[in-house]
């Protein structure tokens, strides 16, 4: 099967790769490019563990084809921290003990950042609504929601 040449930007870095038409963005990120921070939980768009942003829009990377990100910018969990340190959301997730097993954490962080980019002061309800596409089986969500509230500075 001939491969498709794709040029895009991942976490700020110009990137090119070859992929098959049938490969999802998730598969290419994980298996071809080594961005294994993006997790696979269901591969059918129902758990959010593979959440990334494409041109700033929150998507499940298992639901789009890798070939679709030509000329687009992709953001993964690996792009959240910088040389200056952790992103405030990452820090708050640690302080609030918002992760147990941690498999859903990259997806929640990417989704939470997309929320705060769109709505810097979300209410608890808005956070719960936005994050309803991300499943966590360990925490019961309490400490995740508290971390996002705290990171947004809207903790009551």
């Amino acid at each position: 099967m001939s491969k498709i040449h794709v040029q895009c930007t991942i976490n700020g870095e110009p990137t090119e790769f070859l992929c098959e038409a049938r490969q999802s963005l998730l598969e290419v990120l994980r298996e071809e490019l080594g961005f294994t921070g993006t997790k696979e939980g269901c591969n059918d768009g129902n758990c959010g563990a593979c959440s990334v942003t494409v041109d700033g829009v929150l998507v499940d990377s298992c639901l789009i084809l890798a070939a679709e990100v030509q000329d687009k910018t992709v953001g993964t969990v690996e792009g959240l921290a910088s040389a200056e340190g952790l992103h405030p959301l990452q820090q708050k997730f640690l302080e609030h003990a918002s992760l147990q097993c941690g498999i859903c954490t990259p997806g929640f962080l990417v989704a939470s950042k997309a929320l705060l980019d769109a709505n810097p002061n979300p209410s608890q309800h808005e956070i719960r609504h936005w994050l309803a596409g991300n499943l966590c089986r360990c925490t019961g969500y309490d400490k995740i929601v508290r971390a996002v509230l705290d990171a947004a500075g809207t903790a009551e």
Binding site: R30, T36, L109
Partner: peptide, 10 residues
């Protein structure tokens, strides 16, 4: 675990 460095089985 918050930076994506942690290596899981998959």
């Amino acid at each position: 675990k918050v930076t994506g460095r942690a290596v899981y089985g998959g």
